[in-house]
Simulated assay, not measured.
Amino acid sequence: MSKYLLNKFLFTVDRDPELVERYREQPRATVEWWEAEYGNRILGCHTGESSTWLRFDDTEREALATHDHPKLFELGAHPFLTLTLFIAMFERDYAEPLGFQLEYARRLSHHDLPYPDIAT
């Protein structure tokens, strides 16, 4: 398991409006494509430098592919990264103000302190 890689995925997708839409519409394909193309690139490097060992495990890949933010939280993904990305993807689906944020909070409300470790 790599909290670093989970957070890197959430961060890089959130920074690109086209990737946000791609991830919303084709999550599984986007996760597979991103892992193959960008997962091993060193953060901040567009080409050239990369590592050879970073891969999502099956649990991480499935949580990302199904937009399962409670599972991502349990796996240690930073809640700020999941919240900002998922607001960009799903806020438009809610009629009431803060609709997605309230749903996000409701789906995480079963967690008690201490929360899962989000340190990378």
Rank of each mutant, 00 (worst) to 15 (best):
H78V: 01
A36Q: 13
A77Q: 05
M89A: 06
E60Q: 10
R92H: 14
G44C: 09
S50W: 07
I87K: 12
V31I: 08
L85N: 00
S2V: 04
R107H: 09
W34T: 09
E60P: 03
F100S: 01
A95E: 07
R28T: 08
T84V: 07
F56A: 02
N40L: 07
L113C: 07
F86P: 02
L113T: 00
P17F: 10
D14R: 05
L5P: 10
I87R: 04
R28N: 13
A105H: 00
G48H: 09
P27I: 04
E62R: 07
S109G: 08
F11T: 02
L72A: 04
T82P: 03
A88Q: 15
L64F: 00
T82N: 07
Y38N: 10
Y94H: 11
Y94P: 04
E74F: 04
I42F: 04
K71Q: 13
F73Q: 01
G44Q: 02
A36K: 15
L54A: 05
Q26T: 13
R41C: 14
K8I: 08
R24I: 12
Y23P: 11
S51I: 12
L72P: 00
T84I: 10
D68L: 05
R24K: 15
F11A: 10
H46W: 08
V31P: 01
R55M: 06
F90Q: 02
F86L: 04
Q101A: 13
T52G: 08
Y94F: 13
A105S: 12
G99F: 00
S50Y: 05
R55L: 12
L98N: 12
A105G: 08
L64I: 03
H67S: 04
A65T: 03
G76D: 01
Y38D: 04
H110G: 13
R55H: 12
I118A: 06
D117N: 13
L108V: 06
